[in-house]
């Protein structure tokens, strides 16, 4: 017989591993990716592949040549960042845009902090925001000529962008009519927005998969969506000519993508349920404020980044309910 193994308890381990969790996230993002490929053709597929490959490659290179340690390296986590980044770009963006985004996302937002689990900001969002500020035209407009299908709606800007522009020119919402979309159009399939914003249904399917696999909890997305809905509802009731309706706000501009897949990133979100509620409400409020009053038509990315900053503080002050403490 071999030598006995001796270890402290417990002697068994659960099935989840970092790698399996990250692969689950990749799987959950596949429906949204497929929708974008369906709508925009091979360019969308190319973007997703370039995003994944460049993120994984950059992280591996940094691990290998700067950290000089690839032992505990988790490539699937980088793949998630790459895929998210690709889904955050216009489906018609050029390939080098993703590569630049990957370098910023992995090289600056993730690895400078020490790699997996150490970063303060969500890498994919840092990449996206960098691109958004550096290449605003490329990031907010596209031509639909590469599509496999004839696409007639919004070839210039996202619905949120159209609204913002219209309001800036002194129009009222009823004159702009960009938010006047049917519910089914918003929920199942629309052509405006970046690759990951096309179909709310696809995002929801992916998110439900994550819930079933017990990878994420529903707290953060639910509070974000509820906050946005309630806040927009109040504003919309006060002045429907100036403020877009809440349903439009929930389904547009990557709110669902951000709420389901980016705000729920483990590393950059709070641990306790109480903290997650604060985090979600914060993102919701900041998103609405930016959309209604800010310079940018879209605010989810900024909202998540801003709330990322306060996560350490939230973690410090929001403790889970200890056993034996009165409710």
């Amino acid at each position: 017989m071999n030598k006995l193994i001796v270890s402290p308890s417990p002697h068994v381990h659960g099935k989840q591993s970092t790698n399996s969790i990250m692969m689950d996230v990749v799987i959950a993002l596949l429906p949204a990716t497929l929708v974008s490929v369906y709508a925009h053709g091979l360019n969308a597929l190319m973007l997703a592949l370039v995003g994944v490959v460049s993120c994984v490659l950059i992280e591996w290179l940094i691990q290998k040549f700067i950290f000089k340690n690839t032992v505990g390296w988790c490539g699937s986590a980088a793949a998630v960042t790459g895929l998210l980044l690709a889904l955050n770009l216009p489906p018609t963006a050029p390939w080098w845009l993703v590569v630049v985004g990957s370098i910023v996302a992995i090289g600056i937002a993730k690895m400078t902090f020490g790699g997996l689990g150490q970063n303060i900001f969500n890498p994919a969002i840092v990449g996206r925001v960098f691109l958004l500020i550096s290449f605003p035209v490329l990031m907010t407009s596209w031509d639909a000529s590469g599509s496999w299908f004839a696409v007639d709606a919004f070839s210039g800007a996202t619905p949120l962008g159209a609204v913002k522009e219209g309001l800036a020119n002194g129009l009222t919402l009823s004159q702009i009519t960009a938010d006047n979309m049917s519910f089914s159009e918003q929920f199942f399939f629309s052509t405006g927005g970046s690759a990951g914003e096309l179909s709310s249904l696809a995002l929801l399917v992916g998110f439900i998969y994550l819930l079933c696999r017990k990878v994420v909890k529903v707290t953060i997305p639910l509070t974000i969506i509820a906050t946005v809905f309630v806040m927009c509802g109040i504003f919309h009731l006060v002045n429907p000519e100036l403020y877009t309706n809440p349903v439009f706000n929930v389904f547009q501009g990557g709110l669902l993508l951000g709420a389901f897949f980016m705000a729920t990133d483990y590393v950059t979100s709070p641990m306790s349920t109480k903290g997650q509620i604060i985090f979600g409400v914060g993102i919701g409020v900041i998103t609405v404020l930016i959309r209604y009053f800010g310079a940018y038509p879209e605010g989810v990315s900024f909202a998540i980044l801003i709330m990322n900053c306060v996560v350490p503080l939230i973690n410090k002050y929001c403790k889970p309910r200890r056993f034996g403490e009165a409710k």
Partner: peptide
Amino acid sequence: RKRESNCIRCG
């Protein structure tokens, strides 16, 4: 036991 990797702060 499987090899330890970085804490991903999943909670």
